[in-house]
């Protein structure tokens, strides 16, 4: 997708300071670690993915300087953070503003609605996207689960990101209403 009508939903820069690079560990290994620890705590979440645990998801937060390459294969899960040049091959590409992507992760936002209104774009194997979406839907994750944060940092990240989300949702709902009143 070339144009994005949801420029106003781009992440407030303040959110960036909760991201792991600022907590002293390289991003990829840290997220890999947190995803695998999540798999130990919540194996059901990954069982739900079935065969699509081995699928390669390219998550592209368009307002961040890097992309995530994720294979959510339970205790063998892998996350790599990379720049936009030389993206590795993937089964699925999911693109959108980071706030919306995180909102889908924690269930605050409806991924279907965002997709159908072009706020996020998805390409590749649709069945893998559907599996991921359904697994996330059941997971009731918080941003801190995904970012591998604990304690105060987790609380700050959750309230910061979820606060941003509730703001984003107000805007999105407003946009919806305008659309609905059109003939």
């Amino acid at each position: 997708m070339t144009s994005n009508p949801h420029e106003h939903l781009r992440a407030p820069l303040s959110i960036l300071r909760f991201l792991p690079p600022f907590s002293g560990l390289p991003l990829g290994p840290l997220l890999t670690l947190s995803l695998r620890s999540l798999a130990r705590r919540r194996p059901g979440l990954f069982e739900r993915l079935g065969e699509f645990g081995k699928a390669r998801f390219l998550i592209d937060p368009i307002d961040l300087p890097f992309t995530f390459h994720v294979v959510p294969d339970g205790s063998a899960a892998l996350v790599r953070a990379a720049g936009r040049s030389g993206e590795p091959p993937s089964d699925v590409v999911i693109r959108g503003p980071i706030l919306l992507l995180l909102g889908i992760l924690d269930g605050t936002l409806d991924g279907d609605a965002l997709f159908f209104h072009r706020a996020i774009s998805v390409s590749g194997r649709t069945e893998a996207v559907v599996a991921l979406r359904n697994a996330i839907e059941d997971a009731e994750l918080r941003p801190s689960d995904l970012l591998g944060l604990k304690g105060t940092a987790a609380r700050l990240a959750d309230s910061g990101i979820l606060g941003g989300l509730s703001f984003a949702r107000q805007i999105a709902t407003g946009a919806h209403r305008r659309e609905r009143t059109q003939p």
């Binding site: 069982e47 739900r48 699509f52 599996a131 359904n134 697994a135």
Partner: peptide, 19 residues
């Protein structure tokens, strides 16, 4: 159930017997 016995058999959806 999470298999083809129900009419909403989409990837990642539905219940295991334990669930």
């Amino acid at each position: 159930f999470r298999d083809e016995t129900n009419a909403r058999n989409f990837p990642g959806l539905n219940f295991s017997p334990q669930e």
